[in-house]
Write a protein that binds this DNA or RNA. Structure first.
Length: 473
DNA sequence: TTTTGAGTTGTTCGA
DNA sequence: GTCGAACAACTCAAA
């Protein structure tokens, strides 16, 4: 117990005790930190967090709460409008300061600036700190003073900068004379009422320790082969750190420092993937309308097809194209989709089905445990061909060829589309072309046990090329 | 200001 | 089956 003045430490996407500048600042400046989390989903834009993301948040909050408790502190959890809820907590604790990490999403930038101004006007010390990125979006500019729009020069520039390293967690935290009341994490209603989350819970250790274990194992055994194996969806060749990074259970500085320390082949490639995360934040900050609007204005009136049945088949993994269906079923059952398959499935929705990329972004938002506004926007605008550094319009992924290249034995398809497991590798990515006797032997009856393809690949490819070409005028 | 080199992730076609 | 060319210019970033 301490009679020092209290500082609220406002937790958001930084659900950890290590590399936590606001927490350290409170201690260094002689305050007793009171960690707080405010659940106000309606204030997130353009949409409140999706189901899978909420499920992860539930675990992450419980975990960081336990971590803070072990250090002698607590996590105070409240729900309600952020401004009023924090005002209540400031009054209850007599806090003289509020510290937090910046979040660079459009909905928060102006709101948080207004809060800072209001708190300072009220005589509080209010300060925000660099958030969940290696380099803050507003501090990187081309020599012409404009934001970067191409990844390679962006990242080459960032690599020349002297970036701060991660800081360790405090070894102990003081407690205030009186703790304010806290709602149980369970009362936030983040877990589903019908248990669709068993697959997610089985696939992930959603704690900081789980992320840390994943990071260490990845660096030790996978990093040397990263460049080759990261594209194989049946393999465990990617870091799978994205949800831990999204919720700040691991900071990008911690991940970067550990990868640099490991070094060797693969490290630069892996760091460039962290770089894409940075680039996504950069783009969202400088182009705040991109979650809702194509960055390339020429796409404003693109003739997207409006076919709810096809979009639903895609969401449910019932398109009849095995690797696409496998990806969407992996997503539905585990809250994750391998990066290679995200591209294949995204290309199929946007190009073969000519569906507005925003429909894909909305589904990913609801179902991904790593759903992140900046990354989701960048990824979907890229595959739609309407974003920064986007895929050329004529790049239409062929799911059969992609399957043959990256899932040659069909192991990935078999895992998530078990009704095709009896098919030999030769046909598993194109069952509609398999001879009748092969299908019969595998127990596959197209249209009954597994759908016929909802579109012909060749025809829909030509249609997409035509639509994209026409857009160019 | 003008110029120049370059740009995540692909497919198809024809020799 | 393997390989190179074509696909389409356009924009970006830096010299």
């Amino acid at each position: 117990m301490s009679d020092k003045p209290v500082a609220l430490v406002w937790f958001r996407r930084d659900l950890r005790a290590s590399d936590h500048a606001p927490l350290l600042a409170a201690l260094e400046r002689g305050f007793v930190p009171v960690p707080v989390f405010v659940w106000a989903p309606d204030e997130e834009a353009p949409r409140a967090p999706g189901g899978a993301s909420r499920r992860w948040l539930h675990a992450a909050l419980q975990d960081v709460s336990a971590t803070l408790t072990a250090l002698g502190s607590r996590l105070i959890v409240r729900q309600g409008p952020t401004r009023e809820t924090l005002a209540t907590l400031i009054a209850e604790t007599g806090a003289k300061a509020v510290y937090w990490h910046r979040v660079y999403e459009p909905a928060f930038m102006s709101r948080d600036a207004a809060l800072k101004e209001a708190w300072r006007a009220a005589g509080l010390e209010a300060e925000s700190f660099a958030g969940d990125c290696l380099i803050e979006p507003q501090s990187v500019k081309t020599k012409a003073g404009t934001p970067f729009k191409v990844f390679t020069p962006f990242w080459n520039h960032v690599l020349t900068l002297d970036l701060p390293a991660a800081k360790p967690a405090p070894t102990a935290l003081p407690a205030p004379a009186v703790w304010p009341g806290s709602d149980p994490v369970a009362s936030l209603g983040l877990c589903p009422s019908i248990p669709w989350d068993t697959g997610i819970a089985a696939a992930w250790d959603m704690t900081r320790a789980g992320g840390d274990k994943r990071l260490r194992g990845f660096l030790k055994t996978t990093l040397p082969h990263y460049a080759d194996r990261r594209d194989l969806p049946w393999d465990d060749g990617t870091s799978r750190l994205s949800p831990y990074l999204h919720f700040g259970q691991l900071s990008p500085r911690e991940v970067r420092d550990a990868a640099l320390k490991t070094g060797g082949p693969g490290a630069a490639k892996f760091l460039s993937e962290i770089g894409w995360r940075e680039f996504g934040r950069h783009l969202l900050y400088h182009f705040p309308k991109t979650p809702a609007e194509p960055m390339d204005a020429g796409f404003a009136n693109f003739p997207w097809a409006d076919n709810p049945a096809l979009a639903e088949a895609w969401r449910r993994g019932r398109t009849g194209v095995p690797i696409v269906d496998a990806g969407l079923r992996e997503l539905w059952s585990t809250g994750f989709m391998h990066n290679r398959v995200r591209m294949i499935a995204g290309s199929f929705l946007v190009k073969n089905l000519l569906t507005d990329w925003r429909a894909g972004a909305a589904w990913f938002w609801d179902t991904l445990v790593d759903a992140d506004l900046a990354q989701n926007t960048l990824g979907w605008q890229w595959i739609g061909g309407c974003g920064a550094d986007a895929a050329p319009y004529f790049r239409v992924f062929n799911p059969v060829l992609q399957g043959g290249k990256f899932d040659a034995d069909g192991d990935y398809v078999k895992r998530y589309v078990p009704e095709l497991a009896g098919l030999p590798a030769k046909w598993i990515h194109r069952p509609w072309e398999a001879p009748e006797e092969v299908l019969a032997r595998a127990g596959v009856s197209l249209g009954e046990t597994y759908p016929e393809p909802v579109v012909g690949l060749a025809l829909s490819r030509v249609r997409a090329l035509d639509a994209y070409q026409r857009r160019r005028g």
